[in-house]
Simulated scan of single mutants.
Amino acid sequence: MKYHTLLFVVILSICDNAYGKIFDKCEFVRKLQTLGIPRDQLGTWTCIAKYESNFDTQAVNKQTWDYGILQISSLYWCSKSDSPGKGCHATCKQFLNDNIDDDVACARHVYDETKKMSGDGFSAWTTYNQHCRGDTSQWASNCL
C-alpha cells in the first residue's frame, strides 16, 4: 500500500510540473525579486510579461513561435525540437510550465546579448517600445 501511495505522489508531482500557470502581477514581481532581477527593472519585466503573454506560462505565439511568460523566441533562443539548443541552450517546451526560473534566466541572457548589440536589452521584446518604455515603476510599486 505504501508503494502505491508513493507512486501516486510521484506521478502527481510530475504531472503538476507539466502544467502552466497564469501569474498574478504581484506574484510575478515577487518571483522576479527572488531570482535576482534588479529592483529598477522589475516594472519593465512585469510590463513585458503582461503585454507579451498576459502572465501565462503556456502562451505560444503561433505566428512568431515565441514561448512562455516572457515569449522567448524560437528563432534565436530555444529549440522547437526535444534537444536543447540555440542561444539559451534550451527547448522551447521547457518555457511552458509553471516554473519560470529558466524563462527568466534565458530572458536575462537575451537582454544581455541585445544590450551588447543595441544598447537597450529590452528592445528584444516587441511590446517594449509600444507599452513598456519609460517609467514603468507603477507596474511593481504596489507589490513591493
Rank of each mutant, 00 (worst) to 15 (best):
T91H: 01
H109A: 11
I14F: 13
C15R: 00
Q71D: 09
Y128W: 15
A140C: 07
S118I: 09
D120Y: 06
F8R: 00
D98Y: 07
N54D: 15
I69W: 00
A18M: 12
T126G: 08
K93Q: 12
Y76V: 10
N99L: 05
C47V: 14
L6S: 03
D135T: 13
C78T: 08
Q130D: 14
K25T: 06
V29G: 11
D101I: 15
K62I: 15
E113N: 13
A49G: 07
C15G: 14
T136N: 14
I69T: 09
L6D: 05
L70E: 01
R108H: 09
D24N: 13
D120W: 03
V10R: 03
S73Y: 02
E27L: 07
S13F: 08
C47Y: 04
P38W: 07
S53W: 09
S123T: 09
Q58V: 01
I72E: 05
I11E: 00
H109L: 14
F28D: 13
T46M: 10
Y76L: 11
S137Q: 14
G134T: 13
H89P: 00
A90S: 11
L144D: 08
Q94K: 03
Y3M: 07
I22F: 00
L75K: 13
I37D: 06
L35P: 10
K2D: 11
I48N: 00
S137P: 06
N54T: 12
R30Y: 05
N97S: 14
G43Y: 08
C92P: 05
K50R: 10
V29C: 05
A140I: 05
K93C: 00
N17T: 12
Q41C: 03
L75R: 11
G119F: 05
A59I: 03
L12W: 02
K50C: 02
T114S: 01
Q63I: 15
A49W: 03
C26L: 06
T126L: 09
K25Y: 00
C15Q: 06
F122V: 08
I48E: 01
W65R: 15
I72D: 06
Y111G: 01
C92L: 07
R133D: 04
D98I: 01
H89Y: 13
Y67P: 12
K50L: 09
V110H: 01
F55N: 14
Q94P: 02
D112C: 04
C15A: 09
Q33A: 13
Y111W: 08
L70V: 15
T91A: 01
Q138L: 08
T91D: 03
A49P: 02
C47K: 07
W125R: 04
K86L: 07
K115D: 04
G85S: 01
N129Y: 13
C106A: 03
N17S: 11
A49V: 07
S81Y: 11
G68Q: 05
L32R: 08
V60K: 06
T34V: 12
R30T: 12
C47I: 11
A140Y: 02
S79F: 02
V110M: 10
D101Y: 09
T64R: 12
G20C: 00
F8M: 04
K2Q: 10
Q41E: 15
Y67N: 02
C78G: 10
K21V: 07
S141Q: 08
I14C: 10
K2Y: 04
A59Q: 08
D66K: 13
C88L: 04
Q33D: 11
